[in-house]
């Protein structure tokens, strides 16, 4: 695969990979690092990419593994204070803006869901993947995917409703 083909066929996945890594890591610079790392790995295997039925699913799987590794090592460091601190600093400008913005409200709520639920919500409700694709990317079986998705969807709705009631009574 030539650099030109890599650029026109592989690199355009950067947006999707970034959204996915961002959802999992909840940290923009780290998500950018992960995307670059995914592309380095794909570049190293550029001549073998034809063998994959879906390069995109392969790329998303690499991204998932890199993100989960990062999350795991963060937990192992047990340095929660600095972690929170880092996160607050690395959010985009509009994350600092009024949190009442409905986009931010949902964003925050999804951000506190467990990793697997965040991952599945991102793949299904944001990116619109079919269940067999989500199965390939996450390595989970379809039943587990549906169970997690169902929990996540209900949880988002519940937390949103709570927030609304809170705002209502406050006024």
């Amino acid at each position: 695969m030539t650099p030109e083909t890599f650029k026109s066929e592989i690199l355009p996945m950067k947006h999707k990979l970034f959204r996915f890594a961002g959802r999992l890591l909840q940290n923009i610079p780290e998500a950018e690092d992960v995307v670059q790392e995914v592309f380095i790995r794909l570049w190293d295997r550029r001549d073998a990419l034809k063998q994959y039925r879906s390069v995109e699913a392969f790329a998303m799987t690499i991204a998932k593994n890199l993100c989960l590794d990062r999350l795991k090592s963060k937990r192992n460091r047990q340095d929660e204070f600095t972690e929170k601190h880092e996160q607050a600093d690395s959010l985009t400008p509009y994350h600092h803006a009024e949190m009442k913005d409905s986009f931010q409200k949902v964003n925050q709520i999804i951000g506190i869901l467990p990793e697997q639920q965040r991952m599945i919500i991102q793949l299904r409700d944001v990116e619109g993947y079919e269940y067999d694709e989500i199965e390939e990317i996450t390595g989970m079986n379809q039943n587990a995917i549906r169970v997690n998705l169902s929990r996540a969807r209900k949880q988002v709705r519940e937390l949103m409703k709570k927030q609304y009631n809170y705002e209502f009574t406050k006024n």
Binding site: L11, L17, S102, F103, V106
Partner: peptide
Amino acid sequence: YRVYREIFGFYDTAVQEEFPDPDFD
């Protein structure tokens, strides 16, 4: 349905988010 409007509206917007560095390639 207000709460669903916000949730589904979020998914519609979130999918348009782009990689921050335009000169990445």
